[in-house]
Write a protein that binds this DNA or RNA. Structure first.
Length: 209
DNA sequence: TACCAGGAGAAAA
DNA sequence: TTTTCTCATGGT
C-alpha cells in the first residue's frame, strides 16, 4: 500500500481504462498485446471511422477486412482472428456478467487469443471484478524496487498482489492504472525516474557487496 | 539502424 | 513439460 500511496500522491486518480464502454475495453485489451498504446489508439480510430464500435459491427467484418482496419496495432492477422474469437464468444454467451469471477475468468481463458493478462484486463476494467493485472510495467517496477522476482509465474504474482491488497476492484483498477502511467509516461526503461534510479543504484551496490 | 512496446499460441526440444 | 519462435507496426 505504501507504493500505491506514493504513486497516487504523485500522479493522482487515473480513472481507467481509456475507452468509451466495456466492449471497447475488451477490443483494446487484445490490440495492446505486446504493443504500444499509441498504435492501439490508431487502430481503434480506424475501427470507429466506419461507425460506432460494437460487437455486431465487428462480427460483420471478415478476418481480412478486420485485419486491414487494425493494421497500425501490429500483428494484425493474429489479432484479427483473436478479436473475432472474442466477439463470437461474447455473442454466444449471454449474461456473462451474472457469472462468478472465477468461472468467468476460466471461460475467457478458453477463448483463442485470451491469455491471463488480457483476461484480467477484461475482468477488471470491463466487468469491474476484483482481479489484479500483472503486466510488463508491474513486473518492471516491483522488480526494480526489489520487491519481487520478475520471472515468477503470472498466477503466483497475481495471487500475491490480491492477497496483499484484499478484494477491492476499485483499488486494483486505480493501482494498475497508476503503475502503467508511471511506466509508460514517467519512467521509461531509459531514462529512469528518480524512484527507479535510486532503486537500481541500491541493487547495484548490494550486488557488489 | 536498432531497439522497444501493457502477449499469446504454436512448434521445437 | 519447458523453452524458443513467430506474429508487425510506429516511435525514439
Amino acid at each position: 500500500m505504501a507504493i500505491y500511496r506514493r504513486l497516487f500522491e504523485a500522479y493522482g486518480p487515473q480513472h481507467w481504462w481509456p475507452a468509451e464502454d466495456p466492449f471497447e475495453v475488451m477490443v483494446g485489451a487484445v490490440l495492446t498485446q505486446n504493443t504500444a498504446w499509441s498504435n492501439v489508439e490508431r487502430a481503434i480510430a480506424r475501427l470507429k471511422a466506419d461507425g460506432p464500435l460494437t460487437l455486431s459491427s465487428l462480427l460483420r467484418l471478415s478476418p481480412v477486412e478486420l485485419a486491414q482496419r487494425i493494421r497500425p496495432a501490429g500483428y494484425f492477422n493474429v489479432k484479427s482472428k483473436r478479436l473475432l474469437s472474442l466477439c463470437r464468444f461474447l455473442a454466444d454467451q449471454p449474461r456473462l456478467e451474472a457469472l462468478p469471477t472465477r468461472e468467468l475468468r476460466e471461460r475467457l481463458l478458453a477463448v483463442h487469443g485470451i491469455g491471463p493478462e488480457t483476461a484480467d484486463d477484461i475482468l477488471l476494467y470491463a466487468f469491474e471484478r476484483p482481479v489484479f493485472v500483472i503486466d510488463a510495467y508491474t513486473r518492471r517496477l516491483f522488480s526494480r524496487l526489489g520487491l519481487l522476482d520478475k520471472e515468477l509465474a503470472y498466477e503466483t504474482l497475481r495471487r500475491a498482489f490480491e492477497r496483499a491488497l484484499g478484494p477491492q476492484s476499485g483499488l486494483f483498477n486505480e493501482y494498475h492504472a497508476l503503475i502503467v502511467h508511471h511506466g509508460k509516461d514517467v519512467c521509461r526503461p531509459r531514462p529512469l525516474c528518480e524512484v527507479c534510479r535510486l532503486a537500481d543504484q541500491c541493487r547495484f551496490r548490494a550486488a557488489r557487496r
